[in-house]
Amino acid sequence: METLMTITAGILLSIGTYLILTKSLLRIVLGTSIFTHGVHIMLLSMAGLKTGAVPLLGEDAAAYTDPIPQALMLTSIVISFALTAFFLVLSYRTYKTFGTDDMDQLRGSKYE
């Protein structure tokens, strides 16, 4: 199971990277979303899967799943949402200001 999950995560990361490397701003934003999914799945599978019950004490089980990755990921999900929102607005503003969403045209100044 862990191996399958890791490979899935690898596929997601590949596609995320590919999208980030494209010219279109919107695809880059989508790419970061996919990338985040990949990272989450990776984190979860690294901790070992199905090693116990849901991490709620009332379940009265002999063992529980490791709660730490879950706590970390909860933070990560929320922050990645904030990031996606910010990226989206930033690309909106970039498009409004420069009139293009082509990354090849959005290079730094030639005097740097």
């Binding site: 862990e2 995560a9 690898g10 590949s14 596609i15 990277t17 599978s45 690294m46």
Partner: peptide, 13 residues
Amino acid sequence: SFLVGFTVTVIGI
């Protein structure tokens, strides 16, 4: 991108 995904997968496993 494939290289990145491959690296991460190998390290993850």
